[in-house]
Design a protein around this nucleic acid. Structure first.
Lengths: 345, 345
DNA sequence: GTTGGAAACGTAACCGATAACGATTGCAAC
DNA sequence: GTTGCAATCGTTATCGGTTACGTTTCCAAC
């Protein structure tokens, strides 16, 4: 149970079976050149000792390990979704998965964590890695697929259609009659943040609504960062009738601030988020948001990495997955049109 | 970015710095016996080449790796909670974490998966492992802490107070006036399932309510398994006024079956679960359940394993964490007292 | 009986890093 | 000028498994 002595090695098996370790290795790996009787001997010795080949020793000697790695800086509920997708894609593929989390950087959003994790894994332990939401570009001696890459990255990646999703959000709000729409941006180095802001800007521009820079708050995807920004937007006399936050986490904080200021949602203020995290459906009212399937992000990333490792990848190296607007209770037509706007427009 | 050549090894650094690999090793590990100028040379070479020590080679040579392992057979939202707790306990501890998931067994609930994962990790890669909800006893050459162990396990473990939680559930229902309380059990090999059933039985016995074996359905924690059992309980003429399912997943299925049969909850039937998974708060009505903090389970398991590895663990090897009854909308007093009971009692 | 060749198996050199050990150097004490 | 002790650094065995290569065995063909 607890401690069952030292681990069984290949030489233990060899000794018991009366052969060399080379022969044991051949049997384990099913190679040619071992007589049937010897195979039986070795098999029985393996069985009796409960021997399992050491991942470490094998990966040191071989280049291929048939293990893929994944590095993430935190474990959220969406991380579990990603992992489900990854495992689904890897089922029965012969590739196992190792997730590495460094205790030094966990919780602290220190720059370069992804590179440190990656180097640690790609020594010889893994054949390739998936990196979730990195802070910067990464380099590795083995293939890497990035989920939610940084802006303008040329690395193989899987991303949700953030631009399209954000565009539909703004079109939805415009369709309801909103004209003063606030925006709370995410960490600008991430492609996702940039695309969502770009969608906000272009959708307004296409509708002939001028973009007011003072209606844009600079958040960083951290929910807390949205609080002062939401307060600033909502306390001004010409406050927006709707706020679009670049993530659900931030949008939920906007809801809290609105409640605190005595503003009814969606009566006095419409709020929209992005991501569709589980908590959003729970919110009161339900948060209108953009659904991006983290499951599919994980699935596609694993599928791509697998083929990249075996060298048989044919498709594009940058995948864009569709997003979907989920209209819930937090959005409605504005109650009154702000006077400043109607006179100026 | 993508493929940056072959990985940098220690001998590459040694060659560039003009020293032996032993000296590089000493510098990397901060050992005594290297002159300041040599240290500078080596440091600069490491910097220039972007060298990072290989986890594989180190763990093969050393016995200690300062890496802890965790094996789980699936990634659910509660798994993420456990992982958050584990990482919190490991932050700045010097121990990193590796999670291993085998593609052969994922999704399929094949027996012995935990042992196979464990052996693969404990070769020399990890100093110890956390095993989440295993199917049986596990053996390992390094310390193991089990979260939700099998029944009567003597291995070091962390468990929620399932007995107390289940007891309070039944007391809650009895207090509301229920006397015919159905129970849907979990997989009986797990200690958690057994304790929850035991709590159900003893709480009834203490209140002088006889336990009716026909009111107990044998599920296996798989939500689907509860459907026929709930149907059987609710379609009988003397159906129970309340059903206590040993997990939220199964309880939610009971809600569905009740709706399907036209039974109002909590009017016609009270339903209680166990676990407090996120979906339970979302249910209509909200599911009354027992909250067990998966976060704390992970936290305590990691704290214990850490000390077990360093050999400084003093406390008990089996930890019981408190649980808490969460009364939500799915429980209420029974509308009418079943005639059979009142006459018999 | 000899030879050829393939099958079967062992030997030893790795893979990258560590640590015990030995070798060299420098400096102070005698 | 020795001697002795640190300080500094290289050499080498080692971890467990894989594989190129060499050796032995065995059977068929001549």
């Amino acid at each position: 149970m607890a401690d069952g002595g030292s681990p069984v090695t290949m030489s233990d098996v060899a000794r018991l079976a009366g052969v060399s370790t080379a022969t044991v290795s051949r049997v384990v790996n099913g190679r040619y050149g071992v007589s049937a009787s010897t195979i039986a001997q070795v098999r029985s010795a393996i069985e009796r000792l409960g021997y399992e080949t050491s991942l470490v020793a094998t990966s040191l000697r071989r280049s291929r390990t048939n293990v893929l790695g994944l590095v993430t800086h935190s474990f959220q509920s969406y991380t579990a979704e990603v992992l489900k997708g990854v495992m689904e894609a890897l089922t029965q593929s012969g590739f196992d998965l190792i997730i590495y989390a460094n205790s030094d950087v966990y919780g602290t959003y220190s720059e370069g964590w992804e590179q440190r994790h990656l180097t640690r894994l790609s020594g010889t332990l893994t054949d390739g890695c998936i990196v979730v939401t990195p802070w910067g570009e990464v380099r590795s001696s083995t293939p890497v697929v990035v989920i939610d890459p940084v802006r303008d990255s040329t690395a193989p990646s899987v991303t949700a259609d953030n631009l399209g999703g954000a565009t539909r959000v703004v079109e939805h709000l415009l369709g309801l009659g909103h004209r003063r729409i606030g925006f709370i941006a995410g960490r600008s180095s991430l492609a996702a943040a940039w695309s969502r802001e770009e969608g906000y800007r272009t959708a307004l521009a296409e509708a002939g609504v001028p973009v007011d820079p003072t209606l844009i708050g600079r958040g960083d995807f951290n929910p807390e960062s949205a609080i002062p920004l939401a307060r600033a937007l909502l306390e001004r006399p010409d406050r927006p009738t709707a706020i679009f936050a670049a993530s659900d986490g931030m949008a939920l904080k906007v809801l809290e601030v609105a409640k605190e200021l005595g503003l009814g949602v969606p009566g006095d203020l419409s709020v929209v988020g992005f991501d569709n995290i589980p908590e959003s459906a729970l919110a009161e009212p339900g948060l209108t948001t953009v659904d991006q399937s983290m499951y599919r992000l994980g699935y596609e990333a694993a599928r791509m990495l697998k083929s990249l490792v075996t060298g048989e990848w044919e498709g594009p190296r940058q995948i864009l997955l569709p997003t979907r607007l989920l209209a819930r209770g937090s959005t409605a037509p504005p109650r009154i049109t702000t006077p400043q706007i109607t006179t100026r427009a």
